[in-house]
Amino acid sequence: MKEYTCIVCPRSCRITVEEKDGELVITGNTCKRGYEFAKNEYTDPKRMLTTTVKVTGGVLPRIPVISTQEVPKDRLEDCLKVLYGLELKAPVQYGEIICENILGTGVDIKASRTLQAK
């Protein structure tokens, strides 16, 4: 059994998910969106990925990046490792793809700002 705090709306329902005979039993939600939220959290939790990547020759030594979609939660750490290994050269344009289809997740990582050369 797993318990989640719903973040769909400010009501913050405590929702529990239980597996019984291969079926998911979801309780504590007060709406359909809460049901979906808990189901996703249980079966395939995903998160947006944001971090910074090393840049040389820029006005700053790091550039913020963001995933184009959510990434499976259990892949976050591996994705980060990939990104921490990168080194970009300024200038970098906003929206530029820093890493395509990161670790085969189907998600791209893009620059979340423009970083001019020094």
Partner: peptide
């Protein structure tokens, strides 16, 4: 650099830097 900006205005999850 985290996301969660612009939900009202741009109807999507942007990072602060993107919003700027």
């Amino acid at each position: 650099i985290h996301d969660g900006f612009g939900l009202h205005r741009f109807k999507r999850r942007m990072s602060g830097a993107e919003y700027a």
